[in-house]
């Protein structure tokens, strides 16, 4: 009995040993673990298609910021790693504002941003002696959507959108927007108030960022909005074009008339600027001092040369090739 009771420290030791072992095991596995994944990275052995000498770049590039830009940066980092496996690239999703907070104190070398840097963020950067280059990498179109059963609201003017979404709006039925439209309720769907998409839509439609009527179904998860609009014949909503592109069969696009006739968002109209004002450029910001590091410079160069085709692969609209060329001169 006493013998047994005396053994409780052993239990404690065993528990600790398990945890320590668990911790200690992990460093041994990385050598073994990547092997099954190696089929994805035989490229380093074959000469890289770039004409440059295959200098073995190394180091760590820290990137943080907008989750809207994240898929593009992830794609570029993934391709970059095949050519330069020694460079560690960490990409976070703290949001545009959260990313700039780290960028302006020099904690990150690159910041993903779905809007331009604000004046207060600029001030902080200057105070901390941080210089940056602003590089637009893609267009993010906002799409306004209705249910496929909705046969009337196939195009709307920006004034009508403002009438519906402005703070204090009393529009509750479709015929209040345009008298010839049916006397049916209008149910609104939109992204949550923390998202950059909400900021952007309110800024260009109601005239002031974050100024919106509050009585709409809001969700940070755009997939919830897709389901809401797809299941409600009287719905009207908006979100990023990439989400529409993945769910084309469930919703109908509204053509936007900003005074020059209704325009549907397509790769072409977003790219040539006719789908206005609901398409915006999204950026990466690069710390200029960090460009002195060869791996950072090469990564940004890679971003501008390989980026365009990756941009469309992840659902965004690439910029004109001249923009990427201009970006390259900015980092020279």
């Amino acid at each position: 009995m006493t013998n047994n009771l005396r053994k409780w420290p052993v239990a404690l030791a065993a528990l600790l040993a398990i945890t320590v072992l668990l911790g200690a095991c992990t460093p041994t596995t990385p050598t073994a673990a990547p092997t099954p994944a190696s089929p994805t990275q035989p490229q380093p052995s074959t000469p890289a298609p770039t004409a440059r000498p295959p200098a073995a770049l190394s180091g760590t590039i820290e990137i943080d910021g907008s989750s809207t830009v994240y898929p593009i940066t992830e794609a570029v980092a993934e391709e970059f790693r095949k050519v330069h496996p020694q460079v560690r690239i960490n990409v976070g999703i703290s949001g545009t504002g959260g990313g700039f907070k780290r960028f302006v104190v020099g904690e990150t070398q690159i910041s993903d941003a779905s809007r331009a840097i604000s004046s207060s963020e600029k001030e902080l950067a200057t105070k901390n002696n941080i210089q940056w280059a602003e590089l637009p990498v893609a267009y993010d179109g906002l799409s306004v959507l209705i249910n496929p059963k909705n046969a009337w609201a196939t195009s709307m003017t920006t004034a009508e959108l403002k009438k519906v979404w402005a703070p204090g709006s009393t529009v509750k039925r479709w015929n209040q927007v345009r008298t010839e439209w049916p006397d049916k309720p209008i149910n609104l769907y939109g992204p949550g108030t923390d998202s950059g998409t909400f900021d952007y839509f309110t800024e260009v439609i109601t005239g002031k960022a974050k100024a919106s009527r509050p009585d709409f179904t809001a969700s940070e998860d755009d997939n919830v909005l897709v389901q809401g609009i797809a299941g409600d014949p009287n719905s009207l909503g908006y979100f990023g074009y990439a989400y529409y592109a993945e769910n084309k069969d469930k919703m109908k696009l509204v053509a936007i008339d900003a005074g020059k006739g209704p325009v549907l968002p397509t790769v072409e109209t977003i790219n040539n600027g006719t789908y206005s004002p609901l398409s915006r450029p999204i950026f990466i910001y690069v710390n200029k001092a960090a460009l002195a590091r060869p791996e950072v410079k090469e990564f940004v160069r890679f971003y501008m040369t390989q980026g365009p085709k990756l941009v469309s692969e992840v659902g965004y609209v690439p910029m004109n090739t001249t923009t990427y060329d201009e970006n390259l001169t900015k980092i020279r």
Binding site: P30, Y70, A77, I89, G92, S94, G98
Partner: peptide, 20 residues
């Protein structure tokens, strides 16, 4: 954890407690 380290893209396994 997002407040401490909101990383999503990470291509290594932490080797010691000071790693990201």
């Amino acid at each position: 954890m997002i407040a401490i380290s909101a990383l999503v893209y990470l291509t290594f396994i932490p080797k010691d407690p000071t790693d990201r």
